[in-house]
Nucleic acid binder design. Structure first.
Length: 261
DNA sequence: AGTACCACCTGACGGC
DNA sequence: TGCCGTCAGGTGGTAC
């Protein structure tokens, strides 16, 4: 699930629940979700510390500890955070649990185990080490144009390529292309300035709207194709049945009438 | 440079 | 009911 808007929502969630509280204990319930850090090192880095601030880059959430280092969270396809008071509420698929001195708990929940938790010395070098491009939400038009221009593959692949632009995944790439009226297989090379600008504004608009609605697909505007992402789904604009096609191994949904090839 | 395929995991769903 | 293939919004590696 978690693409940029989802991670932004998770960031707000962590900010409003877990900042400035002393960590009492850390339980790694499944060490496979850890990147390069061992359970012991992670425990030592977090225990008796506090989360000071957070930042997001693409689909990564970075949590700054008062000790100086950063806890890095990636949510894979099924990851999320859950904050709760009663230990009996510890959710299923809890892979890592942080107990605060105040008696509350923060769980990193990840059913499919495709996420990753790690420790980094520095946020910038972490982002560089992951080869992430600029964050889709902080991007200016000139940078965007330089990234898109000259690409010879499908536009959707470029939008989803985290090395080029960080934060957009399969779902929101489809939505951005729908809102812009572009076919997912469009070759970026051929886009003129006008279309590039529309695509840029479409990207910003979709991300902002999704964040405003807590990245909850049920709350998104009816003009959004995202809610129709299922077999038999129809175009919210012209009502024609959506098409499905594989692009770089992922399923793309698009409207054959509204999204010109 | 771009794509196709596989792997990593767990679970839901439809067909037989 | 049970088995099996397919699919699912993540990334990374390989071969072409």
């Amino acid at each position: 699930m978690p693409e940029l808007p989802d991670v932004e929502v998770i960031k707000h969630y962590l900010d409003s629940t877990s900042l400035h509280q002393t960590i009492e204990k850390v339980t790694v319930r499944n060490p496979k979700i850890l990147g390069n850090v061992s359970p012991r090192v992670l425990r030592e880095a977090l225990t008796a510390r506090k989360f000071q601030t957070t930042r997001r880059h693409g689909k990564y959430l970075l949590v700054h500890l008062d000790g100086g280092s950063w806890l890095t969270l990636h949510f894979g396809m099924t990851g999320r955070l859950e904050y709760f008071g009663d230990i009996c509420e510890d959710p299923r698929y809890d892979r890592l649990r942080i107990d605060f001195v105040n008696g509350f708990h923060l769980a990193y929940v990840c059913q499919r185990m495709l996420g990753e938790v790690d420790l980094a010395e520095d946020a910038e070098s972490f982002i560089k080490g992951k080869n992430l491009g600029p964050d889709a939400f902080g991007l200016d038009f000139t940078t965007f144009r330089n990234i898109i221009r000259g690409r010879r593959g499908a536009i959707k692949s470029t939008l989803m390529n985290q090395r080029r632009i960080a934060g957009i995944g399969n779902i929101y790439a489809d939505e951005i292309l729908f809102q812009t009226g572009l076919h997912p297989n469009t070759v970026p090379d051929r886009l003129d300035e006008e279309m590039l600008r529309r695509l840029f504004q479409g990207m910003k608009g979709v991300l902002q709207t999704a964040i405003d609605h807590h990245a909850d697909s049920r709350r998104l505007p009816r003009t959004y194709v995202l809610r129709q992402r299922h077999k038999g789904g129809t175009c919210p604009r012209c009502k024609v049945e959506l098409r499905r096609v594989k692009i770089s191994g992922r399923t793309a949904y698009y409207c054959p009438r509204c999204q010109a090839a």
